[in-house]
C-alpha cells in the first residue's frame, strides 16, 4: 500500500496511450468500418433494386408474350376465316365455271345438232332429187324445181 513515482509514470503512459488510440487507432478502424457498412448497405439496396427490376422486366416480358399470343390467335383466326372465304369463293367460282361450261357444251351440242340436221336435210334433199331424177329417168331442171325440192327438204 504505497503511492510513489509509478503513479506519475502511469498517468503519463496512459495519456500517451489515449493520444495514440485517438489519433492512430480509433478513426482508422471505425472509419473503414463505417465506410464498409455504407457500401454493404448500398450493395443490399442495389440487389433489392435489381430484384425489383428483374421482377418488373419479367412481368413486362410476360405481358408482351401474352399479347403476342393473343395477336397470334387473332391472326390465325383471321387466316382461317380468309382461307374459308377463299375456299368458298373458289368453290363457287368453280361451280359457276362448271355450269358455264355445261351450258356452253349444251349450246354447242344444240348448234352441232342443228347443223347436222341442216346438213342431213340438204343431203336428204339432194338424195331425194337424185332419187327422183333416177326415178323419173330424166333430168329435172334443178333451177325450175329447186323451190319444190327445198319445200320438200324442209318437210323432212
Amino acid at each position: 500500500m504505497h503511492i510513489n513515482l509509478t503513479l506519475v509514470i502511469q498517468m503519463a503512459v496512459f495519456a500517451v496511450l489515449i493520444w495514440f488510440t485517438m489519433k492512430f487507432v480509433w478513426p482508422m478502424i471505425l472509419g473503414p468500418m463505417q465506410e464498409r457498412e455504407r457500401r454493404i448497405a448500398q450493395g443490399l439496396a442495389a440487389a433489392n433494386k435489381g430484384e425489383e427490376e428483374l421482377k418488373q422486366a419479367r412481368d413486362g416480358a410476360e405481358a408482351i408474350l401474352r399479347e403476342a399470343r393473343e395477336r397470334a390467335g387473332v391472326i390465325v383466326d383471321q387466316a382461317q376465316r380468309s382461307a374459308n372465304e377463299i375456299l368458298e369463293q373458289a368453290r363457287s367460282a368453280a361451280t359457276q365455271e362448271g355450269q358455264r361450261l355445261v351450258a356452253a357444251a349444251q349450246q354447242q351440242i344444240e348448234l352441232d345438232a342443228a347443223r347436222a340436221k341442216e346438213q342431213l336435210r340438204q343431203q336428204v334433199g339432194a338424195l331425194a332429187v337424185a332419187a327422183a331424177s333416177k326415178l323419173l329417168e330424166r333430168e329435172i331442171d334443178a333451177g325450175a324445181h329447186e323451190a319444190l325440192l327445198n319445200e320438200f327438204a324442209a318437210q323432212l
Partner: peptide, 28 residues
C-alpha cells in the same frame, strides 16, 4: 512511508508499458 515520489515500481511500469505496447501495436 505511504507516499514517496522518489520510489518507483519497476515491475508495474514494465508490465504497464509492455501491455500498452501490446494493445497499441496490435490495434495499430
Amino acid at each position: 512511508t505511504l507516499v514517496n515520489f522518489t520510489v518507483i515500481d519497476y515491475d508495474t511500469v514494465f508490465f504497464s508499458v509492455l501491455l500498452a505496447v501490446l494493445f497499441a501495436g496490435s490495434f495499430y
